[in-house]
Write a protein that binds this DNA or RNA. Structure first.
Lengths: 301, 301
DNA sequence: TCAAGCAGTTTGTCCAGGACAAACGAGCGG
DNA sequence: CCGCTCGTTTGTCCTGGACAAACTGCTTGA
């Protein structure tokens, strides 16, 4: 009764929808026999919506650490089953459970109220270094388990961003803030939440933060840092960022950047990198930001 | 004296840096003889930084309406020359000139002060429908002319976003706001400024806006709209968004979305589309938003 | 004078199938 | 238990061909 065709998506759209490159989509088809798209009149691949959904499930599992060869062939039911039994870290549930429930209700105002309350109770610094990472992880986890959808995660992200920007706005501005930090992300990293969190910590530590939002081309980072007379360039990497790509870009950036400008990186996306290229400081975990700024003030430079 | 090599970028990085797909980079090389990357030990393309810069210039010119065949072979000097003589719309200069000067100084606080002043003078609605579009255009123009850099554009965008979010925060919340609008952008559209501008206008018109930030997968938009019991799904498209891709995705989305939910689109990215697929309303120009909401209130639904 | 239709050209995207280096994981020895 | 080596997995890149959609410029008719 339901039309057998429905919406058929071309490979370019599937790339955007799943985050899997065209090359990957084609090579998986060749190697694993999935996805197996139809062909349109032109001979081009046409992916049924259902296969795209399954690809999205696979993507989540891979982000959770599964390997393609083991899961790409599995049927959708098995995939959902796997999503159910994640590592299930039994961190203190209480903290974020109300949040997840509220998110699922889908009422932004209620979510905001809850977070505001937490913020007022803990103060900004603890909120950013403790509550938010915890909640981020819980939300990410819930998303991977299929407990909440992507759009609910977006909702969460929006509310937190609003909150943090507001808090930042209300921070007293020091006249002689140092060091001067240029803050941004590399092209391909569109997650702005980590950026705002770092921004907050840096501002709290007394730094003069110049945030440029997400996705600055390498060459522009160099120009901005030079023109702004920055002491430090700080980059944020979410878990979604490919660690290999990060390392590659960072090596290029370090080469392009004047050596007297420090390069700081942090976030889940660069944690897997064992050997950071020389001249780059990895700040991990988040609260290290404060200490590093203190070290900068004390240091020779 | 300057090392002949410097940083050499692989094709994937160049794709991210320039926004030109790998396919395009390769086909240009074949057809026009540019770019002409070196090869690394592995036989893979390795792009010198200078060619990447030239590609970025070409990209700007193309966004300004030039065609590849005419400009790809031109030397860098000629490209910069072309960037100089854009259409040069002689709209009232005065409005945005101070802004550009301040941007060039690179002092975020000063930029913010200026905008705040304008906002206070004009009121929120006029600020969003008149001043901001004008300034956006001026900034985009200046960027294409090479008068300001990408990072200065980012700076502008950051300040405006901060300002708008703040204004939104201070808007009185109505208890029974209608209609309910789910607001977001398609995957690939990362420009969040237009989103905030529309959000502001919708909120001012009394709508119940649920904004999900940028880059929602099609399937998630459908889920969100359904679960949030939305009356309208509104999408924003910046000039950077490829009109063809937009039309394609919109057709799919309209198919996936329940027919009782309206689909509104707007922004420079969809203006070139002559024949919008059925069931989709194009809202153009920006201030039409208010009128459309009034129409909705009056209408049968 | 202008709208509409038509042919030619330009241009982005897609295809196949091969290749290879980096990342991974298992097994081994210190 | 840590660190190494070696086979396997996996993503990215390669070539060169093909084609539809978009755009250009011309012609025709009102």
């Amino acid at each position: 009764m339901n039309a057998p065709i429905g919406a058929m998506l071309p490979i370019g759209t599937v790339e955007r929808e799943t985050g899997l490159s065209k090359d990957v989509l084609r090579v998986w088809e060749r190697r694993y026999g999935f996805p197996r798209p139809e062909r349109d009149s032109n001979g081009d691949r046409a992916y049924p919506a259902q296969q795209v959904r399954r690809l999205q499930l696979i993507r989540r599992l891979m982000d959770a650490g599964h390997r393609p060869g083991k899961i790409v062939r599995l049927p959708e039911s098995r995939l959902r089953q796997l999503l159910g039994n994640g590592p299930q870290t039994d961190s203190e549930q209480g903290n974020a459970d109300d949040l997840l429930a509220l998110l699922h209700e889908g009422e932004p105002a209620a979510v905001e109220r809850l977070l505001k309350q937490r913020l007022a109770m803990q103060g900004l610094r603890a909120f950013v270094t403790e509550t938010l990472p915890d909640m981020n992880e819980r939300v990410g986890e819930a998303w991977m388990n299929g407990a909440i959808s992507v759009f609910e995660e977006h909702l969460y992200s929006e509310v937190v961003q609003t909150l943090l920007r507001q808090a930042l706005q209300n921070l007293p501005t020091q006249v002689t803030a140092t060091p001067r930090v240029v803050l941004t992300t590399l092209p391909g990293e569109q997650h702005g939440l980590g950026l705002l969190m770092v921004h907050t910590l840096l501002a709290l530590a007394g730094a003069d933060v110049r945030s440029f939002g997400v996705q600055m081309p390498l060459t522009e980072i160099v120009t901005a840092a030079t023109r702004q007379k920055a002491d430090i360039v700080a980059l944020s990497f979410s878990a979604a960022f490919h660690a290999g790509a990060a390392k590659e870009s960072l090596t290029s950036l370090r080469e392009l950047l004047p050596s007297e400008i420090q390069l700081w990186v942090g976030g889940a996306g660069v944690r897997p990198i064992r050997h950071m290229p020389p001249g780059i400081q990895q700040i991990q975990p988040l609260e290290q930001v404060t200490r590093q700024i203190q070290a900068w003030h004390a240091g020779p430079r």
